[in-house]
Design a protein around this nucleic acid. Sequence first.
DNA 1: ATCCCTGCAAACGCTTTGCACATGA
DNA 2: TCATGTGCAAAGCGTTTGCAGGGAT
Lengths: 162, 162
Amino acid sequence: MSKKHHLAKIEIADLSEEQQQNWQQVRDLLTSHLERKNQRKTPERYAILKAIYSLDEHFDIDHLYKLFKEKQFSVSKATIYNTLEVLLDAGLVKKHQFGQVQAYYEKSFFNSNHDHIIMLDEEKIVEFCDPRIEAIKKDFEEALDIEIESHSLYFYAKKKSK
Amino acid sequence: MSKKHHLAKIEIADLSEEQQQNWQQVRDLLTSHLERKNQRKTPERYAILKAIYSLDEHFDIDHLYKLFKEKQFSVSKATIYNTLEVLLDAGLVKKHQFGQVQAYYEKSFFNSNHDHIIMLDEEKIVEFCDPRIEAIKKDFEEALDIEIESHSLYFYAKKKSK
DNA sequence: ATCCCTGCAAACGCTTTGCACATGA
DNA sequence: TCATGTGCAAAGCGTTTGCAGGGAT
């Protein structure tokens, strides 16, 4: 199938120099993950990973789907969903449920732990980090004898000055 | 419609003495909210509010729907959705998006501000409260000149000792 | 040559919507 | 009366699934 041959050398996104360097690392991380899990190294998986790491914002499935469509590489939504599951498992992307609607994702490597402030009156998401969150987690882990595997924290805010 | 007459005196739930007292207050809160908004005081709205305040845990729409069905009072899901919107607006219930699936709700009056620890290996949700959350909010409000209207914080945890 | 992965479309599950009828004010 | 609320069923929408064919190993 000729389409596949295209995909093999797909350059879905032009990467900046920094992204170029990161890409090598991330690609290798996916490779070793797939080998460890005995999963196939399909061109789709690398293409999707690369597309994600070329984005600097949060995105949803449809965003990604349209990106591929524009670039003339058709990747089905089913595959995107599947692949994101794999990348999630590999720790290379993070999934968010900002609103009540669809899920949002973001790359998670070279992108340290942070939480989000959702700006309600504009289409903007601010990332922040505060050590007190980890402190709270640690305290409750000890107090309740539990292990907190993950957390989700969102602040929903509006601009104050007008 | 005879069904309505039943609803008017509906006792969907047997309330404990404490709940009985709270019920008076909550009912009045709904009443004044509806009057303020020029919305109708329908028996369904009071029945749903009462049912919610008789529950001590988090619930979803279907839970509520089945509760009414069991008790022989049919209230349509559309009405439940509508009414929850009203109660949300009145500040009498809170909406949560725990997993990726459907929304969960809980009564929010007589039920002070708290966050949740979702126990992953059992069907349990632990409520907790920590003043540091408010401190963080306040700090970011000042630092970014924003007003944080609400937040959602969930810890996903497992029991440590086995 | 396997059998996993992809693509397509249909199914799914929660939520929303449209419309006719009922009802609170 | 009459605008609003309710009930029912259909539509929406993001996500998942089933299956047939393709491709990685």
